[in-house]
Amino acid sequence: MSDASISPHARSGSLYWAIQARRNIGVRGLFVVVLAFMVAYGFLFHGLFTGSGFAKFTQSWFPLALVAMAQVILMLTGGISLAIGALVSLGAVIAATTMTGPLGVAGGTALVCLVGLGIGAATGVIVVRLRLPAIVVTLAGSFIIAGAALLVLPRPGGAMPPWLSDLLAGNTPAAFGVLVVVVLLWKLYLATPLGLSLYAAGENPVGAYRSGVPVDAARIAAYAISGLLCTGAGLFVAAQTGSGDPIIGNSFTLNSIAAAVLGGIGFLGGQGTMRGALAGSLLLSLMISVMFFLGFTPVAQYVAQGLIIIGAVAIPQFRMRAR
């Protein structure tokens, strides 16, 4: 009796882990490279294994991890966003102008989240319902969002409550804790009907639609979540710098795509895993830090970054063809 009730559970459990292990196959090489960079970084920067060193390192990685997730959610549904950087800036200026005002930290956070969700959902509706190409809509959208950020705060300024900056960007690994929570929430989301539809909508939209998958809803939800992650990253960046800057997020657009691609996410939708993207963003963050500690000039950094990204994409292609 008890045996019968346990065994299906155990079987489904082992099935779950078997599938998870199989999804690691494509990113195993990446994990090894990340580990190697991590060792190199620990060797160059001995403080990594102290509490505050770990906190500082995860803080430099955190916003990149969030925007990489934001980009990956869209790429999994077959979309893409060129407005990531503008949204990060908007989140940062809203946080820096509201949190020390009458709204307070709670109100400011709520506003940042609402704006991200709202703009993301609006982008999603335009792309999905009006059938416009995502790359061009988000390109035009980036102008609108960047303009809105300039209206909120025409020049760098504003302020963040010092205690919040200390909490998020101080000597405690709070940012890492938040990231763990975000990843757990992502796991939970993948178990909901909308989350399950995400891969199906990206892999084969027509087939998914005809099988009764809510393709449009899944794609719009993905844009909304992506917007939320971007403005959230903006809030963190504002806490890090202690103020707002309407163009602070610009570099995140490119880096989010680079991290996603390093993590093995395909442009056609439905290919890749979030763990790969997180590893990709970690690799990018480590790469920048290691090159900085090795005393690379900015020129060499640009050149090395370009070569590593192309290599990371081209090598698996060669291996696939050799097979």
Binding site: I126, L139, G141, F143, I144, G147, A148, A149, L151
Partner: peptide, 13 residues
């Protein structure tokens, strides 16, 4: 500049 950027994006859209 903010409104100019918003106008440009909206018109393209």
């Amino acid at each position: 500049p903010g409104w100019r950027s918003i106008l440009f994006g909206t018109l393209i859209l």
